[in-house]
Amino acid sequence: MRQILVRSEYCLGCKSCELACAVAHSTSKTLFEAINEPMPPQKRVFVESSGGLNFPLQCRQCLDSPCVHACMSGAMQFDRATGLIQVDEHKCVGCLMCVMVCPFGVIAELPDTHRVAKCDRCQDLDYDPACVAACPTKALEFVEVREFAHSGRQTFLDQMKGVN
């Protein structure tokens, strides 16, 4: 299965991925229209920086899926078709239990509807991640996991070592 992987050493923190992600979750799917939509689209990738490194972070699809375990409405579930963890926005009641346990802090609260949103791998774009396409330095890549050198994973995961 293809995964979004990050070469954090290439990330310049320009947040192009954040913009692209928000646009990918707008109604119009274009930047110039999206900014005027009544319900501003929510980005699901967050460029974090820590100890001099930038890291564009989105749902890591944790194997132990703490969010699914914490979700008390059944909204956060494995999607059988894609094998991805997805939130069903209609079931979500905004209890934020998932926010409380997501170790990467990548579940966003939608202020208007009081629900949550997270990376859905760009479901609307036929699972062609917008963040990856937007990154000008190719810090984000969408590849078969085997192709990606192990070194690419390091950084943030290193920092989070022992956590989880």
């Binding site: 990330c11 310049l12 923190g13 320009c14 460029v47 974090e48 920086s49 930038n54 000008p136």
Partner: peptide, 10 residues
């Protein structure tokens, strides 16, 4: 504002 855009910073 963190992180600030590296393109601009450079």
């Amino acid at each position: 504002q963190q992180p600030q855009c590296g393109f601009g910073s450079l």
